[in-house]
């Protein structure tokens, strides 16, 4: 088994950091564009973890899952941007807190 140039723990730490940043962005940001971007960050954080793990154990599964996440992210962005356009059209704003019609 070939040793990585960077230890796995470090990669996982960066991945967790990225994930937390994305998560915080989701919690804090009100603009929907930024929320989408934060989502991308979170997806890529998890993708990074898969890659690192795959490389660590010498398995191809990690890269397969990375490709899957990549395509999911593309699809998600396509749908997400469509929703953004609709929200802009209806509410004349991109503030998520104003789009709270679906409350109990």
């Amino acid at each position: 088994m070939q040793e990585l140039a960077v230890p796995l723990n470090h990669v996982l730490f960066v991945s967790t950091l990225l994930f937390t940043i994305g998560m915080l962005g989701l919690m804090i940001r009100r603009n929907i564009i930024f929320i989408l971007m934060s989502l991308e960050v979170m997806l890529n954080a998890s993708a990074l973890a898969f890659i690192a793990a795959g490389a660590h154990w010498g398995q191809a599964d990690g890269q397969v899952i990375f490709l899957l996440i990549l395509s999911i992210a593309a699809a998600e962005v396509a749908v997400g941007l469509g929703l953004v356009l609709q929200i802009q059209k209806r509410f004349k704003t991109l503030d998520m807190d104003d789009a709270n019609r679906m409350r109990g």
């Binding site: 998520m96 709270n100 409350r103 109990g104």
Partner: peptide, 11 residues
Amino acid sequence: YSQSGRMRWYM
């Protein structure tokens, strides 16, 4: 009441 419709709260 918890179903407030606010995205960030859900998050």
